[in-house]
């Protein structure tokens, strides 16, 4: 278990101290497909992989419908999905209209359980990558 990172070199041209900088960047070990997640759920619960697949679709519908009503959705142990707006500003309150709402986004805030697990997870440098220049 670990967050895997690689070393990256990048030229930064803004800020108080511009120049070439080094920083750690996330490395994905792979992508677990929906089917693989269903198989994990099958092993960890009374639910079959096929039922998990149906439940995922139903869950997606429930989240989407509630986002459309301006409601958040709290999944205990996982986190909260909530609607947010991408907007542009006006000089006066009276000038603000619906046209200033550019997009509805879905925010995800992890639960305290998930946050704790992430905080406690170790970090490890990737053995697959040398220093990357970006």
């Amino acid at each position: 278990m670990a967050y895997i990172y690689k070393k990256v070199k990048k030229k930064i041209s803004v800020g108080k101290n511009p120049g070439e900088k080094y920083f750690a960047a996330m490395v994905s070990e792979g992508k677990a497909s929906s089917k693989q997640v269903c198989e994990l759920i099958d092993k960890d619960s009374t639910i079959s992989a096929a039922d998990a697949e149906l439940l995922f679709r139903a869950l997606g519908e429930v989240v989407s419908e509630n986002i459309e009503m301006g409601r958040g959705v709290n999944l205990e142990g996982l986190g909260v999905f909530s609607p947010n707006l991408k907007t542009q500003g006006q000089s006066t309150a009276d000038e603000v209209t619906v046209d200033d709402i550019k997009k509805v986004t879905v925010n995800f805030r992890p639960s305290s359980t998930l946050r704790k697990a992430m905080e406690q997870a170790p970090v490890k440098e990737s053995s697959r990558f040398n220093l990357m220049h970006v």
Partner: peptide, 26 residues
């Protein structure tokens, strides 16, 4: 049981540096 196992699966995969795809959700 599904919701609990789902949360556990995401927690496990994320802390092992895996991206998790959930059909219908994201």
């Amino acid at each position: 049981s599904f919701l609990k196992a789902f949360a556990n699966a995401v927690q496990f995969l994320i802390t092992h540096s895996y991206t998790v795809e959930v059909e219908g959700l994201g």
